[in-house]
Simulated assay, not measured.
Amino acid sequence: MTDSGRPSEELVTVGRVTTVYGVRGWVKVHSYTEPMDNILQFPKWWLQGPKGWEALEIDAGKRHGKGLIVHVKGIDDRDLAAQFCQRDIAITRDFMPDLERGEYYWHQLQGLQVISHFDGEEHDFGTVARMMETGANDVLVVRGGADGRERLIPYLPGQFIANIDLEAGIITVDWDPAF
C-alpha cells in the first residue's frame, strides 16, 4: 500500500479523512473541493501516513448530512477503518481540472513572493504561507519579508491583487505596508 517513490510535489491535498462512520468500514471525509462531492470524482486517492503517501481505493461515496462518507475498498470493520482517520487525502496534479484564464488553485499561489507597489515604492511582504477561506472571500496569509510580519490580504483580484505571475513566482498587491 505504501508508495515511497511517489514525489509529494506531484500531489495536491484535496481533503481529510476525519473519523469512522458506522460499523462497516465507512469513514467521514472533509473535502476541500468545491462543490465538496467533486472529491469523489478523482479515481485514485493518496493518504499521508507515517511512512509517506499510501494509495487508497474507495468503492463507494456519497453526501451525508453536511458532509461526505466513503467506503474504503476491502474494509468492512469499524476498527480497521479507524487506521485511515485524521489523515490528509491527496491526488496527483494531472487529475486537477484545467482552469479558466485568471483562475488559480490555492496550491499554485502558496510559496509565491508578495510585493506591494504602494505609494510608488516597492515593499517585499514575504511569501504566501497558506490560503484561508473566510466565507466572504479567500485570504492570502503572507509571512516574512523585510519586516518579518504576517499579513492577511484579501484575495480580491482587481481590488487588492494587482497581478499574479506564476512563472516569475510573484504576486503584486495594492496593499499599505502599515497594515
Rank of each mutant, 00 (worst) to 15 (best):
V27Y: 01
T33S: 09
T33W: 01
G25P: 09
S31K: 00
G49Y: 08
P50D: 14
H30E: 15
T19W: 08
W45G: 01
P43W: 10
R24I: 07
V20S: 03
W46Q: 10
P50Q: 14
E34V: 14
Y21F: 04
R16E: 15
R24L: 07
R16W: 08
V14G: 03
K28C: 02
K44I: 06
F42P: 07
V20P: 02
V23W: 00
W45S: 00
W45Q: 05
Y21A: 04
Y21E: 01
R16D: 07
E34L: 13
V23N: 03
V20Y: 01
W26M: 00
Y32N: 11
R16H: 09
E34G: 05
N38Q: 10
R24E: 15
P50Y: 11
W46V: 06
W26L: 14
Y32P: 03
H30K: 04
K44T: 14
V23M: 02
V17P: 05
L40P: 04
W46Y: 15
I39D: 05
G25F: 11
Q41Y: 08
T18V: 15
V17H: 00
Q48I: 00
G49M: 14
V17R: 00
V12T: 14
V20R: 00
E34N: 14
P43K: 13
L40C: 06
D37S: 12
K44M: 13
G25I: 01
H30M: 05
K28F: 07
R16Q: 14
V17M: 02
P35C: 05
Y32S: 08
G15P: 03
Q48M: 10
E34F: 11
G22A: 03
V27K: 01
T13P: 07
V27R: 02
L40W: 05
V27N: 02
V29N: 00
F42G: 10
I39H: 07
K44W: 06
G15V: 11
E34D: 14
R24H: 08
Q41L: 14
P35M: 09
D37F: 09
V12G: 12
V29P: 01
T33H: 05
D37P: 05
P35R: 11
T19N: 13
I39R: 11
Y21W: 13
G25D: 05
V23I: 03
I39E: 00
Q41V: 03
W45Y: 14
G25L: 01
T33G: 07
V20K: 03
L47P: 04
V29K: 01
S31I: 11
R16S: 03
Q41K: 15
K44S: 13
T13E: 04
F42W: 09
G15Y: 01
F42V: 11
R16F: 06
T18I: 13
L40E: 10
G49T: 14
V20T: 15
V29A: 00
I39C: 02
R24Q: 12
T18C: 09
I39N: 10
W45E: 02
L40Y: 11
M36T: 09
L47A: 11
G25Q: 10
N38P: 03
V27W: 08
H30W: 00
W46E: 13
V17Q: 01
Q48C: 08
W46K: 05
M36E: 09
Y21V: 02
E34M: 11
N38S: 14
V23L: 08
G49A: 13
L47C: 10
T19P: 03
V12Q: 10
M36W: 04
L40K: 01
T19E: 14
G25S: 09
V14K: 04
Q41C: 08
V12N: 10
Q48H: 13
P43R: 06
V23E: 05
